[in-house]
Amino acid sequence: MVSSITEIKETSNHQKWDARFIKDKIFTGLIILFSLITISPIVLIISKLISKGYKQINLSFFTETTPNTYQAMLANEAGNTIPGGILNGITGTILMVFLASLMAIPIGVLIGIYLYENGTKRYAKIVKDITDILQGVPSIVLGLISYFWVVKFITNGFSALAGSFALFIMMLPLIIRSTEETFKMIPVSIKEAGFALGVPYHKIIFRILIPSGLSGLITGILLATSRVIGETAPLMLTALGSMAVNLNIEKPTSAIPLLIWEFYNDPNMVDLIWASSLLLMMLVLGINLISKMIISKRNL
């Protein structure tokens, strides 16, 4: 037996490039190749957006509302850039994301605190499970719900409020979980120090916990915002869209992704699609970048 083992040792000793070594190299090579394939879409998509979209990004893109299809057709025929911009979409996105945050941040943070404080109770576990379920609900279903609740009952028609309500339900679970996770990372001793000084409960929450976890809370809120800012499907069922700037929350309102959808369905508007998508991408990536910067600062 001993001799057979020594034999194995001796043979493979002299072959640095033996089959196993080569197999390992091939394996690593495949991993690298597949990883490159995985990330290739991001490069392809961003370069496409930039190369196709940059020429439409000018001042009027941000200051004017969408042209009608006839104006666009004339411009296309004359070989000009399409006049007008997506101001109605930008204001609509800001309005609806702002309204959604207004609802989602206080409620989400409060529920997050509740879960952090009562995490082991059975009721809290149910709340946690429901939060998880809600996070997995397809956004189009949330749009349908907002249609039944807000469009049908509150605003009696498509409205910014209905759009933001759908976005609110989307943001809620994200903010709840990030709040809970953030507070879990704050040392218990900080909270106990407050109690030891006789600080009342609500002041511990608002003066100690929330300030200590502020950067974490903001990161969670930003990430939730960037998740909903590009949502299209729920808005199609609720906010509908509008050619003009609308700041009345009871009226139909446009949004950048809604405009992209409209441009997609209108062959005259093709050029505007890419510029709008580029802007939307930059918004999402910009918000992500800011939250990453906050995280890395906190970790220093």
Binding site: L44, G230, T232, I260
Partner: peptide
């Protein structure tokens, strides 16, 4: 982070 509609366009 890429919105669904941008994936659709691409």
């Amino acid at each position: 982070g890429i919105p669904s509609i941008v994936y659709g366009l691409w």
